[in-house]
């Protein structure tokens, strides 16, 4: 069974600084520290577990992004993936979910993957779109928010569960080849092993410029950014840590919580 896992390189969200810009808009200072989208670790782990339980399974891991994005493939290779593929974009700009899905579909088409796995969403874009869109381009059955994967009695199917509102689960049988986007918590992603990481370092990845794939159409354009509105008082306590703690205790007292 050939498995393709889609991983995205994202900036460290905690390090992002939002600034006020002209016209009441906002601007972002993005640090130069990038890492693998946290939601994608679950997809890599799920693929490695399938490989471990199935003779002859192999895992390819794919990313779309600029030159620096190739780094994001090391961790999955360290976790047990066999081959990395970098669809290299000419600029730093994120092509957006439709184009990313089209690039991934363009690569995956006719390469015989039985299963394509994505994360539930990217931490920067929060779209959850690449998976369903790639499935549509490839004309594959798909399911999102998948929280359990089991072999089915019929080997051409998988038994899966999707998580719906309030934590309830829909049980489905899906015929392969298929695409799944995985819900966080489906597994506990392992740490990459040092020996695999070293091997990954030597092995290198297959690099394909996105210009050679179906061109990306810019249907959706980002016109600006805004600081999110305050939903409550958002009173900031100041002073030393101890002063803040005293002030907080006084507030708790005043509100009769203690």
């Amino acid at each position: 069974m050939k498995i393709l896992v889609c991983v995205k390189q994202v900036p460290d969200v905690e390090r992002i600084v939002v600034r006020d810009a002209a016209d009441g808009m906002a601007a972002l200072d993005i640090s130069n520290e990038f890492r693998m989208n946290r939601f994608d670790e679950f997809a890599v782990e799920a693929a490695v577990r399938i490989k471990e339980s199935m003779a002859g399974a192999s895992i390819h891991v794919i990313t779309v992004g600029p030159g620096r994005a190739a780094d994001v493939l090391k961790r999955p290779l360290g976790m047990g993936a066999d081959q990395g593929i970098h669809l290299k974009t000419p600029t730093d700009a994120d092509p957006g979910p439709a184009a990313v899905a089209a690039f991934i579909a363009g690569y995956a088409r006719s390469r015989g993957y039985r299963l394509i796995l994505c994360g539930s969403m990217s931490e920067d874009g929060l779209n959850g779109q690449v998976g369903p869109m790639a499935a549509a381009y490839l004309d594959l059955p798909y399911a999102t928010q998948v929280i359990a994967i089991q072999p089915a009695p019929d080997p051409s199917e998988l038994s899966i569960e999707r998580e719906i509102e309030g934590g309830a689960r829909e049980m489905l049988a899906i015929r392969l080849p298929a695409l799944l986007t995985l819900q966080p918590g489906i597994n506990r992603p392992r740490y990459p092993s040092l020996s695999r990481l070293l091997r990954a370092h030597r092995q290198g990845v297959e690099t394909i410029p996105t210009e050679t794939l179906r061109p990306a159409e810019a249907w959706v354009e980002r016109l600006g950014l805004m600081a999110p509105p305050r939903m409550r008082a958002s009173q900031v306590l100041t002073g030393s840590a101890r002063e803040k703690a005293d002030r907080l205790a006084a507030i708790l007292k005043e509100k009769a919580f203690i």
Binding site: P11, I16, L126, A218, L223, M226, A227, P228
Partner: peptide, 23 residues
Amino acid sequence: CQGRLCFQKELYGGKVKGLFSVS
């Protein structure tokens, strides 16, 4: 926004809102 209809959504874990226009 800039004479165009814009849809707002969260980005970057909710730290900012993006304004998007579709063609």
